[in-house]
């Protein structure tokens, strides 16, 4: 079993990765307060998993995976997907990348349509623009499964006329 995280190791990981976790959660969730809730949850899961992340060749893939899970769970359980009108405040929205806003709106629609695995893959593909190889690395599924899921997701997005402009 992996050795657990010590206080100083956890603090170091937080210092290094928390700002990027916050940035990505902010992209996915749209609200700053939700993003900080997600940061806390991500690091609590990291803590629960002990030293599992050390086995990753790229630590960011582990952080990315956990952040995706946490944010998508929040989207579902907190019904954020149902509140597009409750958009970020003016201050929060200022300076936002229009592509990020478009991607988030797409995610809200897809959250109603897709199962957990497909939604995760759709997020990594449409929102984060990961390559298929990177998606395989993050989700830990076979290349074939990811390809199949990706195709289903693209078809569904086309049916909904949602595939973003490239």
């Amino acid at each position: 079993m992996a050795r657990g995280l010590g206080a100083s190791e956890l603090a170091d990981l937080y210092e290094k990765y928390a700002p990027t976790v916050h940035g990505r959660a902010r992209t996915l969730l749209g609200r700053d307060s939700d993003a900080w809730d997600a940061v806390q949850e991500v690091f609590c899961r990291l803590l629960q998993a002990g030293g599992a992340f050390r086995a990753e060749a790229r630590p960011m893939t582990y952080i990315f995976r956990v952040t995706t899970h946490v944010c998508l769970n929040m989207l579902r359980s907190r019904a954020l997907k149902d509140v597009p009108v409750q958009a970020p405040t003016e201050a929060e929205a200022a300076g936002e990348d229009p592509q990020e806003v478009e991607a988030r709106n797409l995610l809200r629609v897809l959250a109603r349509e897709l199962d957990d695995r497909a939604l995760q893959i759709a997020t990594l593909h449409f929102v984060d623009a990961l390559t298929q190889e990177e998606i395989v690395e993050v989700v830990g599924l076979s290349r074939k499964t990811v390809g199949r899921e990706l195709e289903k997701v693209r078809v569904r997005a086309r049916e909904l006329a949602l595939e973003p402009r490239s």
Partner: peptide, 23 residues
């Protein structure tokens, strides 16, 4: 954005809560 998050008050509060969970 990462620089702004690092100096936001929530950064320190969240760190406190995370470390409190460990303790």
């Amino acid at each position: 954005a990462a620089g702004a998050a690092r100096v936001a008050p929530e950064f320190a509060w969240t760190r406190t809560r995370v470390l409190a969970q460990r303790a």
